[in-house]
Nucleic acid binder design. Sequence first.
DNA 1: ATGAAAGCGCTAACAT
DNA 2: ATGTTAGCGCTTTCAT
Lengths: 344, 344
Amino acid sequence: MSKRQSPSFREVAEYAGVSLATVSRVASGRGGVSSEVEAKVRAAAAKMGAILDPREKSQTIAFLPSNRDLLHPIHSRIYVGAESFCRTQGWELVLQTFQYDKNQPAKEIRLPRLIERGGAIRAVILAGVNTTALLARLDAIGMSYAVLGNNLAGDWDPSAHDVVYMDDLEGARELTRYLLSLEHRDIWFIGDVEQPWVARLLRGYRTVMEEAGLAPRWHSMHSDERQAGYLCAKLLISRREPVTAIFAASDPTAEGVIRALRDSGVRVPEEVSVVGVNDTEGAILHPPLTTIRSFPEEVGRHLAELVINRIAKPKLPGQQLTIPTQLIRRESCRVLAATASALV
Amino acid sequence: MSKRQSPSFREVAEYAGVSLATVSRVASGRGGVSSEVEAKVRAAAAKMGAILDPREKSQTIAFLPSNRDLLHPIHSRIYVGAESFCRTQGWELVLQTFQYDKNQPAKEIRLPRLIERGGAIRAVILAGVNTTALLARLDAIGMSYAVLGNNLAGDWDPSAHDVVYMDDLEGARELTRYLLSLEHRDIWFIGDVEQPWVARLLRGYRTVMEEAGLAPRWHSMHSDERQAGYLCAKLLISRREPVTAIFAASDPTAEGVIRALRDSGVRVPEEVSVVGVNDTEGAILHPPLTTIRSFPEEVGRHLAELVINRIAKPKLPGQQLTIPTQLIRRESCRVLAATASALV
DNA sequence: ATGAAAGCGCTAACAT
DNA sequence: ATGTTAGCGCTTTCAT
């Protein structure tokens, strides 16, 4: 056990030429201190290596996949990537699921106790589905954070924050272009459009379809991803919609779609091509699924890097980073041949 | 903010009829206090609702899936089940992956900082792959815990601890019996036998095979589960081993097996039946996989229940709980018909 | 092993 | 807005 003790408030006070009470006031953020004196105190503390905020002692960062019941594989993998980077830097990373209402104003959000109270947690990585109110809440308590940009609902200005994006918008465009390159024209989009990232995928799909002079068509269902895929596909079939390819908003959704098609005697990819998103389980489906890979471990690594950098240099302007996706061509798509879809 | 303050050491001292210093000594565990006086102090503190151990203030439990690089879906789901139970009881649950050497003695294990230091964490749930040294370490620092029994290597006495088991041993027996009931006789077991839970599955398989007067046969490979399945199955094929059914030690392993068989032109289940374990991805495979379901959320719930109970009643004898598994019959198995396996 | 008393680090109350 | 002073909660020292 090292005796490494940080200088006391009394010592900081002497060094800064102020009273003990003033240092205490600065440290507690209770107010009643002029900004000049506060700056003087903070400068003194920094120079002496004194710790005013007990959080500075913590070497632990929190990873919050907010507002998700289950622990999505993507988020597990983001955590794993972030954790392993943290470890190399001497930091530890704990994960805690937590929920708050999407309409809750900043002040009313009850943060996890480790974050709210005491100096247990030094900084936060936000994943999951978040609102700007949570960012405001963290700002208010002076907690540093980096955030996964994809799932942040509503309007906000990313430039003021440390943000990492998975480039699913471009991924969706690439996927759609790929289907077009296979001569498909009757391409449907299936997913829960209420989810912000699905809305963005839809946007990418629409852009490319419209640029190609085609009518984008989609069906949305707010439900379990897999089930939504199954039910939406069944619906398309029963309505005898013209369709030769289906863009599913996730791999599980694609799995549901494929199962629905198979149950209805429609062959994949011979009659209908199917693509998914994220490459979470595409490799083990039958047929193996064409999808876009989104490198969650890499995303986690960068989130960790940004937040650790933020801790070291609080004044730094916010950084934004976009991780490209990669089209993974497997066997669930086929060039649209003379053998038209059974459904047309 | 409520003013609920716990009684001070001074008050406890007065109540117990000892000095402030003695209470401080008891609280810090520094020693130099007779056991009678210590008991008197603790009794007084308990009666007054005073907090001697700062951990008592914490309402947060840690979930440690130890020694696993990735965050296995099973462990994610155990966490989710445990977290949601904790939440209903007013507790929070944080997850942290952490590694230690299997040969490390208790004293040398570096625990996560939140657990080692300060009063951040009240108790621990151990999942992942653990050694008895970690249990000893937690005992030494007076940290309450419950442990997932399946993955604890080596000899130990469960009766002294709070343990939850997934009954994979009986699951393996049931699965083997099921294959026997389909007339299979040439049944191979594939998995990484170095993993404690795989060793137990193998034991269940062997027991039933031997009771049926059949020779158990297995192939082990220390590798990625999926890849191990693929390579072991390929090996069986290339060696032209007689085989009509394969017991894979996990669903991913079964997926590898099925892919290897398909790549070699062997049809599942027509020529070879395949089963998996844990039902993590069996439902989305093709053909849908017969497997045993192990209810990880339920396991998590019970782990949380045991550890919360332990906090409330530290003197209670250890409790052990076994969660049964369930055979899930899907389409990857077939009654062995006159059409003998292509490999025989 | 225990207590009395001094000391440390911080907060709170009060004064200006 | 800042300093002075008192006080709280706990640890440490020293004496027995």
